[in-house]
Design a protein around this nucleic acid. Structure first.
Length: 435
DNA sequence: TCTGGGGTCCTAGGACCC
DNA sequence: TCTGGGGTCCTAGGACCC
């Protein structure tokens, strides 16, 4: 059995380029939420020496004269385009499971080297043709080795976006050329420990004894070691719904006013409820956290969180928002400059397993709420998030002159691209003709 | 001035019970 | 009241991923 890892090349950058073909050979970067850090770079941007993760202001300082195309992140667009990519992949490999927004593993039936290579070449061309997204494919006997293969598929143009590791010789050779910090499951901390022990490549690591690895890294490191040595031990699909859902944001500048903070928290809570409904779950615990800017050493620092347990687990916007508001009230302290806030829902279970509390349960109210949330979700999907909201999600304060103060979005998205796909796709879905 | 967001898994240690 | 071991459950924190 072989695994094929299909991985979008510079995913977010490629998504932006689908609708901006003029940027094909230009340096392009995509920024994180709030236009904070660089989260994706095109090949040309990497060649300029732009490091991943640097704050945007440093990018401007370091490359004042370069012609770099900069985009704010546009997750609706990326979600839509990658969904199309996944659809095409699934048509070529029925045993496919998505691993992240831009990666999927496929399980291949027994095939010869030539057949696997041809399958990969063909799929790569097909995805590019139908979606405009360049992908690379790595094929090997374990998922970790497939990751290694996809690294070489991207790195050397000679592979034509598809690299197959199918013999012991190729496995050893590729591990010798694979830096230890690139290994899936070995992060920064482990890398520094390993380099101190004289380990530079994946091959150095895989050549040590299993006991030695277990002593240093316990179970996770041992799994990685086994995978590199050709023993498949990472389970395939996990379609389990998420165990916790979090929506949080940093603000541009800071927030000191309770009402403004409450508005943000209400919106995050509403997003959590929407995500719960999307995965057909309910949650029993709502947590809210707030913190000040840790980089501002000149300002007093504050961090706190609070949780609220719902009498009956729920995914109703109104209930999650109410719980979040109570939490915020209990931790808000006047006088601090808040930089970030978030809502986490936990104690998640399937929505058909609802355990009602007879003190709390009102069937009529419950059914009305379900219908209302369904309609709100639909309207927001078609017309964009926050088309329909609770009043508490909006900031309405009459100023002294009687005019309503408009709630300014504290999240910055200066360079956000349009969403050419979203509306079209929703109409298609609604009329019952999916892509 | 500006420094991301959203997850998962594992482990150690504390609380509690018998 | 004290003594001790062992089991379970929960939580915080670390490490990692994309």
């Amino acid at each position: 059995m072989y695994f094929a890892l299909c991985d979008c090349d510079n995913c977010y950058v490629s998504c932006e380029r689908v609708f901006r073909p003029d940027l094909k050979h230009k340096p392009v970067v995509v920024l994180s939420n709030n236009d904070g850090c660089v989260v994706a770079r095109s090949k040309e941007a990497k060649q300029l020496g732009i490091k991943g993760g640097i704050p945007y202001y440093q990018l401007k300082e370091q490359f004042p004269n370069e012609d770099i195309a900069v985009f704010s992140s546009n997750y609706e667009l990326y979600g839509e385009l990658t969904a199309r990519v996944m659809t095409v992949i699934q048509k070529s490999a029925p045993q496919m499971f998505r691993y992240s927004i831009d990666e999927a593993f496929c399980i291949l039936p027994d095939m010869s080297y030539d057949e696997m290579k041809e399958w990969g070449d063909c799929l790569q061309k097909k995805v590019l043709k139908y979606t405009g997204m360049p992908i690379s494919i790595g094929i090997a006997q374990t998922k970790t080795l497939a990751k290694v293969a996809s690294y070489f598929a991207k790195k050397y143009t000679g592979y034509n976006h598809c690299c197959v590791i199918d013999t012991e010789e190729k496995r050893i050779k590729s591990l010798q050329l694979y830096p230890i910090n690139e290994v899936w499951g070995i992060g920064r901390k482990h890398t520094s420990r390993l380099t101190n022990l004289g380990i530079q490549t994946a091959y150095d690591f895989a050549s040590h004894s299993k006991d030695w690895v277990h002593n240093i890294f316990n179970i996770i490191g041992t799994r990685t070691w086994m995978e590199l040595n050709g023993e498949n031990c990472i389970p395939n699909e996990k379609i389990v719904p998420k165990k916790s859902i979090c929506v949080s944001r940093s603000f541009t500048g800071h927030v000191t006013d309770f009402e403004i903070l409450r508005t943000h928290v209400s919106n995050y809570a509403a997003r959590c409820a929407e995500k719960l409904r999307k995965q057909h779950s309910i949650a029993s615990i709502v947590t809210v956290f707030v913190n000040t800017n840790r980089f501002r050493e000149d300002l007093p620092q504050y961090w706190n969180s609070s949780e609220f347990t719902l009498l009956t687990p729920s995914n109703a916007t109104q209930e999650i928002v109410q719980a979040a508001t109570k939490c915020l009230q209990s931790i808000f302290v006047k006088g601090y400059h808040y930089k970030k806030a978030g809502v986490v829902v936990m104690g998640i279970m399937a929505d058909n397993a609802i355990q009602t509390n007879f003190l709390d349960y009102d069937r009529n109210r419950f059914e009305k709420q379900v219908k209302l949330d369904e309609i709100v979700d639909l309207l927001n999907r078609i017309n964009g998030t926050e088309t329909v909201t609770l009043v508490s999600q909006q900031y309405n304060q009459k100023a002294k002159n009687g005019k309503t103060i408009v709630f300014a979005d504290a999240i910055q998205h200066q360079f956000k691209s349009k969403n050419p796909t979203t509306r079209w796709n929703d109409i298609v879905t609604l009329t019952g003709h999916p892509l």
